[in-house]
Structure formats: C-alpha cells, structure tokens
Design a protein around this nucleic acid. Structure first.
Lengths: 368, 368
DNA sequence: TTGTCAATAAATCAATCATGTTGACTAATG
DNA sequence: CATTAGTCAACATGATTGATTTATTGACAA
C-alpha cells in the first residue's frame, strides 16, 4: 500500500540506515545490505520494497557474471526527495534546490552591501515561491535548511536588526515543510559528511576558512551541534598568544593584509604571493594547533580543511598545516591526517540543504 | 519465570534506561518512569517486573499523602550486581569489590617501588580469588574493570616488561566474567558520570590531576573513548609555550618543585604554600586554556576538575581556573562552568568497577 | 464526627499491532 | 549441481491501546 505524503517521510531507523549506506557506498544489492546492517535478508526485502514503493530507491539492472543468482543493485532515486538551502553571507545570499544525490537543480543569488532581515526575507520568499511554482511535484520538497553565521549583530551598527530576529521562524510561517537553521561552518561540515566525495572516517573535525573561520565536529557519523547549538565553534578556539583561531586563519585577515575586499562570489581571486604566503604560514600554525587539540580531546583520526578559497590556496593551507603539525609536541597522541575537503564554496549551501535531508533520512536524525 | 545467570545480564535498552534513570534521580515510581522514558505504563509494568524478578530493583514502601492511588518507588538493589575494580598506579595497586550503588565493599592494596606484570598479576589473582571465596554468591560479580595509565613503558627502563603485555588478556583467562581496561583518567571520568554525587549535565569534560594529568569526555551521557581508545587525552592537549597540559598541571611537576615525592596513598599531604601556590596558579592557566578549547569544540557547558589531591588543593585549583578562564578571550562562545568533582582519590578505582557496570547496565553500553 | 461519593492517580489486564526472525523454498547463474 | 540472491509463510518479541481495578484525597451531607 502507498502511504500518503505525511507518512512517506516517517522512516524507521533501519530504513534510514539502508539509505545512508547506499548514499555512502553507492548502489548496493539487497544481500550486501543484509550483511552490512546485520538484518535478515527477509527484513531487507520488506524494507526495500517499501523504500522503492515510496520512490526513494531505484532497482538497477541485474548484475550477471558471478556464480549464483544475479543481484539487483539498489540506488538512490535522484528525485526521491528535494531540499531547499538558503545561505546567508556578508555580501551574498544564495538559494538552491538540491536533489536527493546532492546535485544543485536550481540556484539563485543576490549581492548586497550588508544583509537586512527584510531583504533576506523577501529574497527567500520570492525565490522559494518561484521554485515551487516551477516544479511538477512541489510536494517532493522535504524541508528548507538555512546556513548563516551566528551573531550577525556583532558585525556593526547597521546589523542590529538581526538581534532579536528569528529568520527560521519567520520563513517557516506559510511554508508547508519544516525549516532548519545552523551555523554556516557547521553546514559546510554537514555537506562534507553527507554529500562529500572524499572517503572519511566516522569521526572527523572539519575546518572551514571563509570570511570567518569556523568548523564542525562529526562523531560516530553524526554532526554534533551541542546542547546550545554551538559545537564546532572552531573559530573561537584559543590559540597561543592570547588570540583565537579566527583572529588569524580567516579570509578577513587576508583582506586586511591585502588592503581591499575579495570578490564575494565564485569568480576566484588573485592574491600576490608575498601577501598570501605569510598569511598561509601563520594560519597553518593556528590550524595545526587546533587540529591537535581536537585529536587530544576526541581521538580524531582525520581533520578536513576546506574553505571558500581557490583550490590552490586550500591545497597550500593543507600542506602548510601538515608541516606545522609535525612540529607541535604530541606525546601520548597520534597526529591526525590532514585532508582537503571536496566542496569548497558550495559546501555551506549544500550543507544547508543537507539539514532537512539529515533530519528525515539519516540514522538518528544526524543532528542532536 | 526466572532467567539463568547468563540471560540475567542481557538487558534491553529500555531496561538499561530504567536502571540509569533510577541511578541518577534516586528511587522512582513506575508512573514517573513511563513519563521519563516515553514508554507506555504497561511497558513499564512489564519491564520493571522482570527487573525486580532478577533482583536489580527493589520495590519500596508505598508513598501516601497525595491524591490518587499511592505510588511505589523503585530503587536499585544494592546487591543487584557486583563489580571488581583494579587500579594500577606508579607506587600502588588497588583492588576493590564495588556494589550496584557504587559502595566499596572490600578493598585491598599493595605498595611497590614500581609495578611489574608479574607482581600486579599475582596481587590481582590472589585478591580476586580471596574475594570471590569470601562471597556467599560469587556469581553476582558481573565483571572486572582495570584502570591503568597508558604507555607504562615510557616511564623508564625497568618498565619495558609492560610493552607487549596485555594485562586484561592475562587476567581474563580463568575468570568467569569479562574484563575491561581503560586509561585511568578516563575511568575517573566514568566514575563521576555513574557514581558521582554532583548533578552534571549530559555533556561534560572531566580533568583529573594525578601524577599525570588526564581526562575524559562525556557526550550525551556517554563516556567517549574514541576509535583508538584515546579520547580524553587531555594531558596531551597543546597549550601555549610549545608545551602540553601534563608538562604543567600534574602532581609530578609539583613533586619536582618540592624536591621529593608525595605519599602514594590516602594519607593526604602538606605542601608549603610558597611551593604549592605558584604550581596552582600555573596549572590553572593551563586548565582554563584546555577547558575553553573543549567548549569551543564541543559546546560543553561544564568542566569538572578532580584529582588525587587533598580537598583544599582541588578547591584552590578550581577557583584559580575560574579566574584564569575569565581572562581568556572567548568571543563567540560561553565560558564553561568549572565544577569540582566529588570522588577525588577513589575516582579511578570506582571508575574501573564502573566499566563492567556500564557495559551491562547503561544505555548503549556507555562506551563505544 | 462520621459516612458517602466524586475525582484523581497508579497500575494492570487482555487484545492487538509493528517489526523483526527462522526455516523452507524458488530462481538464475557459472 | 553447487552457489548465491531473493521471497514466502509462520512465528516471536516487544511494544501500544483501551478498558478495568485499586487505593487514595477531599468535599459535602447527615
């Protein structure tokens, strides 16, 4: 029997585990799912039947060539569910419609000198209405995720309007699906966890270098947000010299050295090496310190470095961090691997869309 | 129907949740358990019936005085299960039999100049045999936990015998119950989590100052040990000045300042204020730095400070850490509360006994 | 003061449902 | 024909639901 639109999104833990496994490992036949989940083949038959009926999974072409009955790999249905992501930045607001596989289907953006609640609200409302109107099946949208820096009002007098403004609450009214909101650096981490191309362990720390530096923490395959939604505030980590990470390793400090702002969108940048190199060196010192702190505290094997920076800059940051890490004292612990992220600029908005995805489709809701 | 000794320890998640709730909040009537667990009253009736039959819970005297049928609070049965704890130290090895409520029923110890595998093994084997022989129901012992510093062989040439020696494995042979082993600072944290008198949130970091400094991390009410069993290695946290926490905030550095070792057992100590005070001040700086790092990373609201030190010293350390914390930059995060632990010297051996307890009786096994 | 009864809360009984397992079976292949 | 994927039917476990029982307080009338 087919479920109505409500029940369709009400998945059991085992259904979520199946989808999560296929998301990470690619199309899998039922026998492998049984092995990986520890469930009986019969249970997998029943669960996948329901998931296929509800159009979350597609049965692929049977695979022949091995001894025994051929297997039919099951893959995620791209249109199984769709998600909206809204990313709020200092100079740019973006809205995207993302499919079940993490592909951006529609994208719109707007540049401003600084964001105001009204402006963001009307951009989002118009954009969402337009997107929904253009879709054949708007009820396939499971939710909206918002990625935003926290404490916007600390940016200056013109931003006080954000102080007591609850964007998620305002946008939620009138929308037929739930709204989620997280720190933009946390969503970047969520995106790497859910849509990332790199093979990552179940536990990692994610450092994201944008105008500010921030981060996220993944433990046991789940993004940790903490009791006050402020976990992964890696920019606030104390570092030697009475400073914090964001005082050193952020694009804002590079802009200060440079004397002018860098472009807010994806057009890349050219920064003279004699300015970028010392910024990278100093940032890497701080990043290595933070990476080592995280490892001592949590036994983290891998630290991911990503950011809204050109690929070459990210590469240089990761390399320099590895070097700096080797110089820090690490008695009693193993230094973590430093790995580059795979999503760069798009991490935050993809992560925004990943918030409703995780809520409905990942085991445990993936965020506490 | 009564279960045999095997099945008796095989508790479902919901049974564990009931025991865990009663352990933390004291005796509770069934109606409160239903409310707190979200289970139906009927389910609670069935589950508690089984727990009472298996002697893990006792029904108390009915409580009258309120409108409606009187309630019968259920409390933990002290002899519901018993646990052995073995604590290995630099100068002292201890063995304890601990009951379901965390009370030490039998305790024995032995002093040495340094521990050797043979000596520890024979102390433990003799002690366990003697204890079991003296008990009316030795089958009530659910397991043995071992608390030990890691990397004993780094202490000096006379300790190389520990290098490839698996204490848990050797002791486990011939014992009719499982053996668990963790870092001693982690067990101190586990003890505070499970037996501690303080009311603590579901997330906290625990700093334990003994000959070395170490710690533990509790997230969502569970001790985190990490993929390589090395989480909470807080002594290895980097601090400013190219050092690590254990270079500053440990009893070994106090002994260096003092010029002679302090007594290994519970006899307390007298350290001249002009030596202790600067040690406390410098340690507190480092502890505050580490506490703030943990908060930025994990959104930890509370940091517990405990140690194998006299109460006055612990108090002074906590006070000084609060002061130091207030001076550190904390943009974007809330400084954590600094709380004193409640178990001091006994934390590690109680935590050792808590390892099998957590394995059999806490939700999720309480250690990954 | 005492007897009666409605309201309330705790706890259980019996029936049912959801979701898994087990063991026998079928299907398709090298 | 051994091997592997997958399904069918019967059953087991562990929860929920709704009706029911029990024990009490507190109000009110005799």
């Amino acid at each position: 029997m087919l479920h109505d639109a409500k029940d369709r999104l009400d998945l059991s833990q085992n259904e979520r585990q199946i989808l999560s496994l296929i998301r990470r490992r690619g199309p899998l036949p039922r026998a492998v799912l049984a092995q990986a989940t520890g469930l009986s083949p019969q249970a997998i038959t029943n669960l996948t039947r329901k998931l296929i009926q509800n159009r979350f999974l597609d049965a692929g072409a049977v695979v022949r060539g091995k001894v025994g009955q051929p297997s039919t790999p099951l893959s995620l249905a791209p249109e199984g569910a769709l998600f909206l992501g809204l990313k709020l930045g200092r100079r740019l607001v973006e809205l995207a419609l993302v499919d079940f596989l993490g592909h951006v289907k529609i994208h719109r953006q707007e540049i401003y000198s600084h964001p105001t609640p009204d402006r963001v609200l009307s951009f989002a409302r118009n954009g969402i209405a337009t997107i929904l109107a253009s879709m054949p099946q708007p009820d396939r949208v499971a939710g909206l995720g918002i990625a935003t820096p926290f404490r916007l009002w600390d940016w200056g007098a013109e931003m006080v309007g954000w102080r007591d403004f609850d964007l998620a609450d305002h946008l939620g009214k009138g929308l037929p699906f739930p709204v989620f909101l997280e720190n933009d650096a946390s969503t970047a981490c969520a995106a790497e966890l859910i849509f990332g191309r790199s093979v990552l362990p179940r536990d990692f720390v994610h450092l994201y270098i944008a105008h500010f530096a921030g981060g996220g923490v993944v433990l046991d395959g789940r993004l940790r947000v903490g009791p006050r939604r402020n976990a992964g505030a890696l920019g606030s980590m104390p570092i030697p010299g009475g400073r914090q990470l964001l005082d050193v390793a952020s694009v804002s400090t590079l802009e200060e050295r440079l004397g002018h702002p860098l472009p807010p969108d994806d057009s890349g940048w050219q920064v003279p090496a004699d300015i970028e190199a010392p910024w990278i060196a100093e940032s890497a010192e701080a990043l290595a310190f933070v990476a080592l702190s995280a490892t001592a505290l949590l036994d983290i094997p891998t630290v991911v470095i990503d950011g809204a920076v050109p690929p070459a800059t990210r590469r240089a940051l990761a390399d320099a961090t590895r070097t700096a890490l080797a110089r820090l004292p690490a008695a009693g612990i193993d230094r973590p691997d430093i790995v580059e992220g795979s999503l760069a600029r798009s991490a935050r908005i993809l992560g925004a869309a990943a918030l409703p995805l995780a809520h409905f489709f990942e085991p445990g809701g993936a965020l506490t």
